Computed example of a mutant assay.
Amino acid sequence: MEMSTVLTDISRKLNRVMLKGFHGFLKRFLIKDCPYRLEKIGSDYGGWVVPTNLIKPDWVCYCAGVGEDITFDLGIIERFSCNVFAFEPTPRAKKYVGKIAVNNKKFHFYQIGLWSKDSIQKFFVPTNPRFVSHSILNLSETQDFFEANCQRLSTIMQNLEHEKIDLLKMDIEGAEHEVLKSLIEDNIDIKVIGVEFEPMSFLKVIISTFKLMSYKYSLVSIDGRNYTFIKTQILNV
């Protein structure tokens, strides 16, 4: 085994250990009491914890990162009758959606990726060909990739003529840090943000978490890698 591979493996394991400790710190000291009912909607793999008695039928919900599990997206539609706008550039995910949700009038699929700028980006394949998730940041350090159109969140909102987003869920394989930074820069007001933080960089997770807190969001749930934030002023009403 090459030394670079060994060092990469050690780095990843160290990141996971530090993240586990960080999760413990957040759960003990920084997770806020939530006056709303927190429930997990969707499967064990693809589900997310959200404040279910806060969500209304007129909410605009963005779900970035579809893969081959839209149980959360469809669960939101079934339970609250919201419109869900899903974004995923992977061709395999598009085929999956075509089989599962093609006739669902409240599920709107767009084959684009979220990023910090409007551009064509390379999406690198996972190590295991059975996995569907591809990464702009090449988390698996592979050679093969496909190229896809990516847009800044504010651009997508403008194109869809949305003045607001009520719920944003992101499972975008490491791109979450750039997207969070861009939505703060653009001063986009979102009631609930759900984000999966990939364990690639302990420092990036810390920075993004505290950036959201400084942007007046409160952390209300950690479920594995999935964090749920709610706008602090909503909690204080």
Rank of each mutant, 00 (worst) to 15 (best):
P126L: 07
F146M: 12
E161A: 10
Y227L: 01
K169S: 12
L180S: 12
N128V: 13
V102C: 13
Y217P: 00
I76N: 01
K216C: 06
S11C: 12
N83V: 09
G194L: 07
K204A: 05
G24T: 15
F107A: 04
F85R: 15
E178R: 13
K211P: 08
I156P: 04
K20T: 15
F109N: 11
T52Y: 00
I70R: 07
S116Y: 06
D189W: 03
S218L: 01
R12T: 09
R16E: 15
K204H: 01
Q143Y: 14
I41K: 04
D69G: 02
G21P: 15
L160R: 05
S201R: 07
K95I: 03
K40D: 04
E161H: 14
F145A: 07
N53C: 03
A64Y: 01
L14F: 11
S154D: 13
I112N: 07
K56A: 04
G47Q: 05
F109G: 05
K56T: 04
Y96D: 08
M170G: 09
D9Q: 13
F123M: 03
D186S: 13
E196C: 09
L7K: 11
L137T: 10
L160V: 00
W115V: 00
T52K: 03
G46V: 10
F22S: 03
G24N: 14
G46K: 10
P126F: 00
K191V: 07
K117T: 06
V205F: 03
H177D: 12
K32D: 06
I193P: 03
V84Q: 13
P91C: 14
F87K: 07
I100G: 02
V125F: 15
I76G: 00
V50Y: 00
I184M: 12
A86Q: 06
H134Q: 08
E198I: 07
L167F: 11
F210N: 07
I77V: 11
C61T: 12
D44Y: 10
Y217H: 07
E196K: 03
F107P: 06
L26G: 10
C63N: 12
L54D: 03
H162R: 05
